[in-house]
Design a protein around this nucleic acid. Structure first.
Lengths: 164, 164
DNA sequence: CTATAATGCCTGCCTAAGCAGTCATTGCCG
DNA sequence: CGGCAATGACTGCTTAGGCAGGCATTATAG
């Protein structure tokens, strides 16, 4: 039986965790994309490049699971990055279904140049926060995410497929 | 000079506050919309109805400022709600530019029936959290939002116009 | 070994969001 | 009073996301 954090009678949309998270997400995204300015890169695109760079995802399917993004949309996003010579596709000879992604030289340089900008933006956004507050916020969010992944099983496809 | 919460050399996309917030937002949205099921209503639409109900916004422009949404998209969203007889438009005679929004009888009932569902979903999502943890998360997010609104001036149009 | 399912990538279609520009109305200032 | 900026609602265009289906390839079951 769930705790009564919110009650229907007294519910205020603007006080709910949903509104607060949504607004935080949106503002932060704008903040970062604003600092991207004329780099010609979406936050989304940069995140994809980062994941490939760090080996967190090497295929389109990986990226979709990690970022919880549509596979069709991801294909088209990769198309753009490939066209700009930031990323390369290479068919895996062992499993010819999969296409492995890797950054080009200029892709790597590009990603790293934006890391500086992103960390700057994040640090500025968190300027008023102590180190402990940031840690706290991170751990609360992680806990929240963990809980939600239980509730929305589709969301954690990696886990779901392992369970089978 | 901003604190060094994140540093370019050691930056990990998945540990950043951006990733965590984005993922929280997405999962929570899915969680709620999943519980909306066959109600034939987007979370976005419901939020709009709630804002009108509570007098937080009575015009399209208000809604756009509050929810930080595109005015064209909002017009079309209202079109749908009006077509379904959930909301009404009425031209303000004092200022004939503005169109005031209000809920119909069935609109009110509809919103309130969904409040129950939303609060349930939120309580379930926060089941593992103590009351203090929820308060803490809310206050951290509010602080974060406040900071971001300073940084992205367009974001807080209400404030911005007041400043002029 | 074969039939069937599952996986991965991609395409087409539809809807929604973002952007720019239009039109009407109002506020402001000389 | 007259001109000009500002505001509010709306419309067309472009782009991105979600969904369903298709094709090739691999895994699995009998």
């Amino acid at each position: 039986m769930p705790k009564q954090h919110y009650r229907p009678e007294s519910f205020q949309a603007r006080d709910s965790i949903g509104y607060l998270i949504k607004r935080s997400q949106r503002l932060l995204q704008e903040c970062i994309e604003h600092s991207f300015e004329n780099k010609g890169c979406t936050l989304q695109q940069w995140v994809v490049l980062m994941h490939v760079r760090d080996g967190l995802a090497i295929t389109v399917a990986d990226l979709c699971r990690e970022l919880h993004h549509d596979s069709g949309a991801m294909t088209r996003l990769i198309d753009q990055l490939e066209e700009r010579k930031l990323i390369e596709r290479r068919r895996n000879p062992q499993d010819r279904r999969v296409i492995e992604l890797s950054l080009t030289k200029s892709g790597q340089e590009f990603v790293e140049s934006l890391i500086v900008i992103v960390t700057e933006a994040l640090n500025t956004a968190l300027e008023d926060f102590s180190r402990d507050e940031v840690k706290l916020m991170q751990s609360l969010l992680r806990k929240f995410i963990g809980r939600l992944e239980q509730l929305v099983p589709d969301a954690a496809l990696t886990v779901a497929t392992e369970q089978k």
